[in-house]
């Protein structure tokens, strides 16, 4: 898509320009948030509550097995 086409489709009418910005903002919010969240969770794997909780449940199960 050439710049001329981009200009004609998205920039020429102000209503389309403003609408494109807001629509892109609406789509960008969840995409950016999910992207950052999945990076953060990959970076901190093993330290997150869901991982700690799984470990605690494992330990709890072992202790319960020892008691029997």
């Amino acid at each position: 898509m050439s710049f001329a086409t981009i200009y004609r489709v998205f920039f020429k009418r102000n209503a389309v320009f403003v609408g494109t910005i807001f629509a892109a903002g609406f789509v960008f919010q969840p995409l950016f948030d999910s992207g950052i969240t999945s990076w953060y969770e990959a970076h901190n794997k093993g330290k997150l509550w869901k991982d700690v909780k799984a470990q605690l449940q494992l330990v709890g199960d072992e202790e319960a097995a020892d008691d029997e």
Partner: peptide, 18 residues
């Protein structure tokens, strides 16, 4: 043009109510 502005307004509302 007014209909296009209506669409722009709707997506603006969508951003601020998300």
């Amino acid at each position: 043009n007014l209909m296009l502005w209506g669409g722009a307004w709707a997506s603006c509302v969508a951003v601020y109510t998300s």
